[in-house]
Computed example of a mutant assay.
Amino acid sequence: MIEILGLLQCNSRLTAKEIAIMTGRQEEEVKMIIERLEADKTIIKYFTLINWEKAGVERVNALIEVKMTPQRDVGFDSVAERIYRFPEVKNVYLMSGAYDLAVFIEGKTMKEVALFVATKLATIENVLSTATHFVLKTYKQDGFIFEDRETDQRLVIQP
């Protein structure tokens, strides 16, 4: 099962037949395992990683550090839930260290992101402060290098 998950994480377009060949299992067994993993939400979603810059689409991504006061009996969960329900929010992580939540959002412009932070995020009860960091360029995402410049790594030897 773990081997199948690893293969699908690297390439979600693999067919059950291809996975069966790679793992030495029967195709029907692989299909049943994948169906079970989808049903129990171990496999949550399949997606395609797109280089939007190459597609000519302007997008602004930002990491927002959020400091907050945990709530009695629920800790950070209820505030995190309010935050992750916004459609602009792509990822939310509870963090150790200087801030409590790492919130990744996407907008069309820097102004749109700034307005989201000022009017929606910072106004939530128990949010103490935010710090916004804009992504200027993506080099690697989800293990994939966006612009792999193949260069000759051999040492130059001179006589």
Rank of each mutant, 00 (worst) to 15 (best):
V92D: 00
H133L: 12
F116A: 02
Y84T: 10
Q71D: 09
F116S: 01
N91R: 12
Q153S: 14
D40P: 00
V127E: 02
I64G: 01
S12T: 08
E112I: 05
G24C: 08
T151Y: 09
G6Q: 04
L14Y: 04
T42E: 02
L49F: 10
V117T: 01
L5H: 00
R82D: 13
P159F: 13
L128R: 11
E150F: 04
V60E: 03
E27S: 10
L63C: 10
E29G: 06
S78H: 07
V30A: 02
K111E: 15
E29F: 04
I19Y: 01
G56V: 06
D100G: 03
G6S: 14
S12Q: 07
I124S: 03
M95E: 13
K45P: 01
E28V: 14
K31M: 07
L94S: 07
T132A: 11
V156R: 05
E3K: 07
K54Y: 12
K54P: 03
D77F: 05
E53T: 10
T123H: 06
T15Q: 02
Q9E: 15
T23S: 09
S96P: 03
V30C: 03
L63F: 14
V117Q: 00
A55M: 13
G24F: 05
V135Y: 10
E3N: 09
A118Y: 05
E58P: 02
G75M: 02
F144T: 15
I145D: 06
K108R: 13
A114L: 07
Q158F: 11
M95F: 07
K90Y: 09
A114I: 10
V135P: 02
K17S: 15
F146W: 10
A131W: 06
F134L: 15
K45W: 08
V156W: 04
K54F: 06
E65H: 11
F134A: 13
K17I: 14
T123Y: 04
V66G: 01
R36W: 04
T119H: 12
K45T: 11
T138C: 06
A131C: 12
